[in-house]
Simulated assay, not measured.
Amino acid sequence: MSVITVPQAFNEEDLYVDVEPVFGRSLLLKCEGFNFAGSIKLKAAAEMVASAERDGTLRPDSVLVESSSGNLGVALSMIAASKGYRFICVTDARCNLATRLMMEALGGEVHLVGTQEANGGFLAGRLAHVRELCASDDRCVWLSQYSNPANWRAHYRTTAPEIARAFPQLDVLFMGAGTTGTLMGCARYFRDRRHPVRIVAVDIAGSVAFGGAPGRRMIPGLGMSMRPPLLDESYVDEVVRVEETDTIRACRRLARRGFLFGGSTGTVVSGAVDWLARQGTGDLTAVAVAPDLGERYLDTVYQDNWVEDLYGSRTLDVPGSAPGSEDLPVAGPEPAARTAVHGRRDE
Rank of each mutant, 00 (worst) to 15 (best):
V3N: 12
V3D: 13
P7Q: 08
Q8H: 14
Q8C: 10
L15V: 13
V17G: 07
P21N: 12
V22Q: 11
F23W: 07
R25P: 01
R25A: 02
S26L: 02
K30W: 12
G33K: 14
S39C: 09
I40W: 13
M48F: 09
A52L: 09
A52H: 15
G56H: 08
G56P: 11
V63D: 08
G73I: 03
G73W: 13
S82I: 06
F87T: 00
D92T: 08
D92I: 07
D92P: 00
C95T: 10
N96R: 14
L97Q: 11
H111F: 06
G114L: 03
G120F: 05
G121Q: 02
G121E: 02
G125N: 09
R126Q: 08
L127S: 06
V130C: 13
R131H: 02
L133P: 00
W142M: 09
S144L: 05
Y146A: 10
A150L: 03
H155V: 05
H155K: 07
I163M: 06
R165N: 07
R165L: 07
P168I: 12
G178C: 10
T179M: 14
T180M: 13
M184E: 11
R188D: 06
Y189V: 00
R198A: 05
A209V: 13
F210S: 00
F210C: 05
A213W: 10
P214G: 15
R216I: 06
R217W: 12
I219M: 14
M224C: 13
S225Q: 07
M226A: 05
D232K: 07
V236M: 06
V236H: 13
R241A: 02
V242S: 01
E243F: 11
E244H: 05
I248N: 08
A250R: 00
C251K: 00
F259Y: 13
F261Y: 11
F261Q: 14
G262L: 12
G263M: 08
V268S: 03
S270N: 09
W275P: 00
T281D: 04
G282A: 04
G282Q: 02
D283C: 01
D283N: 11
A286F: 01
A286C: 03
A290S: 11
D292Y: 11
Y302K: 02
Q303K: 14
W306D: 03
L316P: 01
D317Q: 15
D317G: 03
G320W: 03
D327H: 14
L328S: 07
V341A: 05
E347Y: 10
E347F: 10
